[in-house]
Amino acid sequence: MTLSLAGVSYGRLFQFTLELDPGLHVVVGNVNDGTLDLLQLCGGDAAPRRGRVLIDGEAPHRSPALRRKLGCAYSDLPFEEKLVRDAVARRLELHACNVTPESALARFGLEPLLTRTASTLSEIELHALELAIALSIEAPKALLLCEPLAFGGGLDATLVLGAIRRQAEQSVVVCATASPRSAALLGPESLLLEHGRLKRHVLAPTRPAFTPGARARVRVESAHAELIAEALTRHPAVSGLSWQRGDAFLLVEGTEVEALSSAILSLSVERQWWISQLTQVLPDPVEIRATHAALARAAYETTHYRLHTDRGGLE
């Protein structure tokens, strides 16, 4: 089972080619980069202007039978039924799911929403319900999820992550997110989408991987932030540090995330300065885009300079 896009042009995507096998695929980018266009094409909302989209050999915009086997949670449109229960039941029935709305939503702790009227649902609750419906489909061919970890409405992130990973064992799961942090939580690999083009395949979601040239950055929360900061200034893995008097956290920079984490944890165990939280600081999409624009510009200038000097040498 594969999901393939061959030379597709639609919305912000231009001559876009991608082939995905079963597994979890995280696409990092925002709506302006074409993440929503990508999901809409794969979900069969629209046909591409040019190129071909196939899931398991079928075009999703032409095959209702295929769409019944796709779980979609993106650009959530409001339910038109009066009660949430009726809306969920109808959608589960369309997907030929053998589960009741109660059992489908109980998995994610969303059953209190069933008694509500659809018009009272907030966007976040609606997204949580669409996610729950998508994750309730039995043996889906593909799951197409936008911001699968950005929700409220009582949905437990661990449960959602577990369900996504289970489905990814047999299906193609595409998760689009604008947050590198969510991407890191979802899986170790990410595809960077920028202005409708795939810019980079990131194998490990670290700051240097997303923004080449940047140093790894780790945020440490501890009651002993001052002491840790003082001790880390002399550590060889640490190349920069930021802490302000009175703060219970500090930002530590270095070339490698592993080396930084190891240094911090060793210090914590050795001196018994307990750390309440250790998180990697990832760049935001604006910073990623700026870095790539700078890299592209640098590559262009270098090539231009070389060509210019070569021509000068020949003359």
């Binding site: 039978a65 796709l70 038109e80 369309l94 997907h95």
Partner: peptide, 8 residues
């Protein structure tokens, strides 16, 4: 659009 997405 929404119902079509669910396979109708």
């Amino acid at each position: 659009l929404e119902l079509g997405r669910h396979g109708a």
